[in-house]
Design a protein around this nucleic acid. Sequence first.
DNA 1: ATGTCAAATAATATCGATTTTTTGGGGGGT
DNA 2: ACCCCCCAAAAAATCGATATTATTTGACAT
Lengths: 221, 221
Amino acid sequence: MNVTRDIAGKETSATHGAYLTVREMILTGALPPGEKLKIEQLRALLNTGASPVREALSLLTSDMLVERIDQRGFRAAPVGKANFDEILTLRCTLEPMALRASIAAANATWEERLVLRHHHMKKASQRGTADFEVAHKAFHMALLDNAGLPMLERYCAQLYDLNIRYRYLAAGGAHYRKRSIDAEHQEILEAALDHDAEAATERLISHYRRTGDYLSRQMEE
Amino acid sequence: MNVTRDIAGKETSATHGAYLTVREMILTGALPPGEKLKIEQLRALLNTGASPVREALSLLTSDMLVERIDQRGFRAAPVGKANFDEILTLRCTLEPMALRASIAAANATWEERLVLRHHHMKKASQRGTADFEVAHKAFHMALLDNAGLPMLERYCAQLYDLNIRYRYLAAGGAHYRKRSIDAEHQEILEAALDHDAEAATERLISHYRRTGDYLSRQMEE
DNA sequence: ATGTCAAATAATATCGATTTTTTGGGGGGT
DNA sequence: ACCCCCCAAAAAATCGATATTATTTGACAT
């Protein structure tokens, strides 16, 4: 009935729908960095009231995708090389930590989940970019989600999304994978299944650093 | 005119005032873990409307002090040994990282700020607990705020607050410092001023672990 | 021209009321 | 006695309108 459903699927609350929609728009660059986010404008776009919009923007503030300036409204978070570098640094610290813990707690269920997600990701890479993005995130998060450290996982997921945003901004979201990313994923998966924490974290980090350097080059400044 | 001002000082927006007040109430235990946070109840307490309350609670969700259950309202975040341990682990990873970066970028301004904050903390430790808490946080954050890594600093501040909450819950907020905490602070300060990153991070970590063990013991389970 | 101030305009923040959803508590039906 | 469905009370979510605050505009004096 409203645009929220049309865009983000069958959502429950208006707030959650607005959250998902605006989030997606910021991540993909439909709402560019620094853009003023006017309540009225979004209210009209999302076909909802001011309260859900404000609440959604408040939630996005925590995700560091939106900045709030007291009494002066909201805007899409700015971007910059320093910010990108910090995201990369934090990911290279936090993800290995989570991956090690996941491997230390390895069990059959987790390994099966990993294999499955990896399979889905490979299948999705033939189809559209959007599908691949979802499956790619799911695979990477599966690597970390056996750690039993929910806050750490949350940080990693947050940083993953912030990083994706830069990918979309740099390449318009398309064909960013030239390298043998498939092979890199394969190697990470195998190291994880072997419970080889050293190799797995090593490969994960270099996976990130290569993508990071590639984007850094495109970003200038 | 409203309770927000009375409690949290001369605040600008109702939302921000509500945020600070509820935050304080959760940190100090006035709103115990797991407590249902009814909008109407808070609205009455804070003498404001539903929108600022909801928005404040949304913001606190990002701070991991409030849990939101869609269509079912908000509650104060639960606590537990696993959560406490995770906070400690994350602090012991992230704070050294920030401290090293701060020291690497050391300059006179920063060192003066450190000395000043340390001085204020010592003075405040004679006076009330509330004053000391503020000065104590200010000192610890000053150790990290020269790193030029705003997201990392934000994570550290967040984890600091979550940790403080456990202190209040364990000891009612009073006399938790038996040990020579003053001496520990002094030693951290000196190592930082000497640009000795190894010693500084070493001391910082053991500072946290000792307090952590002390609280862990009190927490049972 | 330039800087300043005040009114007009635009946008945010907030309120009060309404709508929707969950919850808890009885009746029927098996 | 047990389970399921439906209804009423309570709470959350949302809306529409108002009050508050920032921003712009333009007249006026320097």
